[in-house]
Design a protein around this nucleic acid. Structure first.
Lengths: 337, 337
DNA sequence: ATTGGCACTCGAAGCAGTGGAGTGCCAATG
DNA sequence: CATTGGCACTCCACTGCTTCGAGTGCCAAT
């Protein structure tokens, strides 16, 4: 089929360009791939592909490189899944299993993902909003100061120190603590708001102002705009691709330092793998890059995102596989704890 | 004095080179600085300075650039302190005061320091070893699984989940918890080891194996080889200096991703500002950079380090001032909490 | 539709020539 | 004896030129 061959040509161009990072010409293409036709035919196909916007020439008399649209067609219709080897899977599993706490899990994951994909890796902390409260602790620091510690079932620990409007005794604190504990433990963080509003009313008037402040602080810690955190790793890999980005890599590095930006990248993840290629990217400074992200969680519930950022000419099948695998093992680890 | 003028020349060379990043010649020197002598004289002085190893020529017929030794002489004998403006101090203070917890303080500090110095900033979490235990919590996750949460007075929170060799009841946990709490609260983390050894003996034989595991896990969390953490920010600033590093910046970025390396950089800080210039640096991949670091803490005790990494031709006086200032405010914040 | 052939384009690489900033050295000077 | 003006020399950065070759588009033939 004629149409089929054109797609095969596109695939070949993408593959060659990804591996060599040099514009690929008709002649070298027939040499490297058994396409069964001559270079002249390929040239015709290329002309059509260029008309349709899948490939482009940096300048006349140069080979072709895929456009964002070309990569899009590649990932949508041409690339199979590239399963990870058993050894790789085992390496992931072993590496993550050694983690001692959530911080460690996050740090190890991001490092691991950066290492396998040789790109910049992102891992988001499990969302508090999606978690349930495992434990709540109140420690009296001084007469008018209290430390709140919230422990979620996802392993997250949030702390806030609270300045009280009036002194509280040890007994006051113990009372509030035990009441608050029974009120919130086992609850979804997202549902804390309504539940705690009425809680304040049930407390003795004398300490009500203090309780109000405490509850407010607790809620503040669990609203999702504040509590999101993303860790980043493998920025050194960007340097290897220095010349790959249309713009220099300074704006890319800068964008990656903004938590807000990272959250946007991982913001709309679901169970499936999301792929953003070049200009499809919502962040302007990253429109020379591709972002591959997915969600992870316990069972079906997606509690956070994980992904990588790299040049548009990345190894999509391999990267997708790696991101999925890490997400999968992250979910498994959350389940275990 | 003859010697004095030579030093003045060195200072002028360093200052010019830092601001222009181009080799500086004898003629442009006399134009930009009121040295009161002719360029020929400067040339003689330069020849001497070069013999003594303070400056070097990239090639014949080019101007001079300072060597590591030259910068060393500059910081040791030539640069005064450049005090920060009141506005700057206020900005630091305000920015850090808005932090809601320790993670936030660390994140804000590193960001702030990177912004002021326009270089890569490092901030180390307060060492647990130097802290005292503020609170300890044990949460029963299942019959054979317990979550330990240790809260230190520096604001650090460490968690470990522990697999027990045999099931424990809620009552067991409550008992161990209360005994353990009284044993460790208010203690220096560093002194936990000896204190807890005997603790195990005091517990009922039936649960002793479990307690042993718990105590071991607790100690594991507080030994300093594990518990050290450093946050990093402003890597984008490296890109601006791309050509400044003899070697490309990839190895530099790579080195900065190694926690171990970062710890070495901040490892030997004291109350004074430590300056490592170029080859003086203990980390091979960073011998094209300078590191300026100092310690911070509550009162006199140094609980962690803070610093920046940048090109050898950095603005030493300004950077030193910024690092000191941030360290100072960090200490103040620790004191408050 | 495919193919071989051919003229054409245009960047990359190599090479000479020039300009200028900077140096080292020297003889003269207060 | 430190300082200075003068001068010859060096060598990089830049420019313009040429060559080379990979790659293209088009066309006539099959």
């Amino acid at each position: 089929m004629l149409e089929d061959r054109r797609l095969a040509v596109l695939r070949a161009i993408v593959e060659d360009y990804v591996s060599t990072r040099e514009p690929v010409g008709s002649k070298s293409l027939v040499e490297r791939h058994a396409l069964g036709v001559s270079s002249a035919t390929i040239r015709n196909d290329m002309a059509v592909l260029e008309d349709e916007g899948y490939i482009a020439q940096p300048h006349t008399s140069a080979g072709r490189i895929p456009t964002d649209l070309g990569y899009r067609a590649f990932v949508d219709r041409l690339s199979g899944v590239k399963p990870m080897s058993g050894a790789e899977r085992r390496a992931i599993s072993n590496f993550l299993a050694g983690a001692v706490d959530l911080d460690d899990v996050m740090a190890r994951s991001v490092r691991l993902l950066a290492q396998i994909t040789r790109q910049v890796a992102l891992v988001q902390y499990p969302s508090l909003v999606q978690s349930t409260v495992l434990h709540l602790e109140m420690v009296r620091l001084s007469e008018t100061r209290i430390l709140l510690v919230l422990i979620a079932d996802t392993g997250r620990v949030e702390q806030r120190s609270v300045d009280l409007p009036s002194p509280m005794t040890d007994e006051d604190v113990a009372l509030v603590r035990s009441r608050l504990v029974t009120a919130v433990i086992g609850q979804k963080c997202a549902e804390l708001g309504p539940r705690l509003e009425s809680f304040v009313e049930t407390m003795d008037v004398a300490i009500r102002p203090s309780v109000t402040v405490i509850v407010a602080s607790l809620l503040d810690a669990t609203i999702d705009t504040v509590e999101q955190r993303v860790v980043l790793g493998g920025t050194a890999n960007l340097a290897r691709y220095r010349d790959s980005f249309a713009t220099n890599l300074e704006p890319v590095l800068e964008a990656l330092e903004e938590q807000v930006v990272l959250l946007r990248l991982l913001g709309e993840v679901s169970g499936d793998v999301t792929i953003r290629i070049g200009h499809e990217n919502p962040v302007e400074d990253l429109q020379g890059t591709s972002v591959i992200a997915t969600g992870y969680g316990r069972g079906d519930a997606v509690v956070a995102g994980v992904g990588v950022v790299g040049p548009t000419h990345m190894d999509y099948p391999g990267t997708i596989a790696a991101v999925s695998a890490v997400a999968q093992y992250l979910g498994r680890i959350l389940d275990e704890n």
